[in-house]
Amino acid sequence: MSKIPLNTPVLDPRIKRVDLESTYGTTAIGENEHWISWEVFHQKKRGDQHVHVGIVHAPDAQLALLFAKEQFGRRLACVNLWVTKSSDIFSFSYDDEDIFDNATAPEKQYREASGFRVMEKINRYKKSKQKA
C-alpha cells in the first residue's frame, strides 16, 4: 500500500489555495451574525397545501425567500414558498398531547362514517320482504 506522507508541504493549487491570508484562529463570529431563523413552507403544485419543510437563516423576509428558493426549491416540483419567523410560531406543548386523544376515541364513533352500519338493516329488510 502506498503511504501518504503526512504534512508534506503541497503547492499544487488543486490542493492548496495560494496566499490565503493567515488569519487562522482569529475570527470569532458574533451572535446572530448568521442571522435569525425562518420556517419555510413549500407548495408542490397549485391547489396543494403549503407544507413545512425546514429552516433558513436570513436577516429579512426577502432574503429568507431567496435562500428558501435555493434550499427547498432547486430540486423537486415547487410553485410557491412561504417563510415566517420561527419566533412567530405558536404551538401547543407535546406535554399536553392527551388533549387530542378525544379526536380518535372509540366512543366518538357516532361522528364517523364507519360508526354506522346500514347493510345489515337493508339485508334484514330485503329478507323479510322475500318471506312475505
Binding site: E33, W35, I55, D60, K85, I89
Partner: peptide
C-alpha cells in the same frame, strides 16, 4: 453579514 444584520434581533431556536 454585518451590514445586513439587525442589531435588535434575538437568537430564537428554530421551531
Amino acid at each position: 453579514r454585518t451590514a445586513m444584520m439587525n442589531p435588535n434581533q434575538k437568537v430564537v431556536i428554530p421551531f
